[in-house]
Amino acid sequence: MDFNELKQAVGDLDEEVVLDILNKVMEDGGSEAKDALEACQRGLDIVGDMFDKGEYFVGDLIFAGELMTQAVDILKPALAGTTTESVGKVILCTVEGDLHDIGKNIVRSILEANGIEVIDLGIDTPPQKIVDTMIAEDIHVVLLSGVLTLALDSMKKTVDAITAAGLRETTKILIGGNPVSEEAMKLTGADAWAHNPQHTNQACLDWLKK
């Protein structure tokens, strides 16, 4: 099986070719499913690079997320019971006061395709709910999303709530969405920020593997 072709097809967001290769991978029950998934993950790196270069846009990221959800669904029966383990768990949500979830949902698809278990708390999420979930699920990576400018204030309140609960030193926090920037990261007290979901993914992988 030519997994370079699969990687490139994911990078090109060529759904027909991707699905065709994945279905062929599954013809023998999916003995190479793990390699196929890795090729898809590397294809997502290409998508992320294209987004950074201004050759792909948010609509393409949405489609990439959709494509990866399909890919994982196809490969899932063969992946169950293999050595493909969850890399770790993260909390993902849109912060309090903000009802926008497109960016959050793209991130979720990309993370799941990379073996990260996502506890998605949805939209308009109160800080205390995040803290309670961190404690209940023993989670140390928190991803806060928002579109409105007021989301920055909620992100700061969330970071403060995590600090007040005594969890800040053992937690990594990333903020994402339209209003975030280096300056916003400093303002909110987060550890990292991202517009590109691949950067979010990479940060999570780095943190979870430590």
């Binding site: 309090e96 006061g97 903000d98 009802l99 926008h100 308009d124 109160p126 409105l148 007021l150 909620s154």
Partner: peptide
């Protein structure tokens, strides 16, 4: 067209 917990009308996807 939905009101958020903070009292802002917003348009979800």
């Amino acid at each position: 067209s939905v009101m958020s917990s903070t009292g802002l009308m917003q348009h979800p996807n």
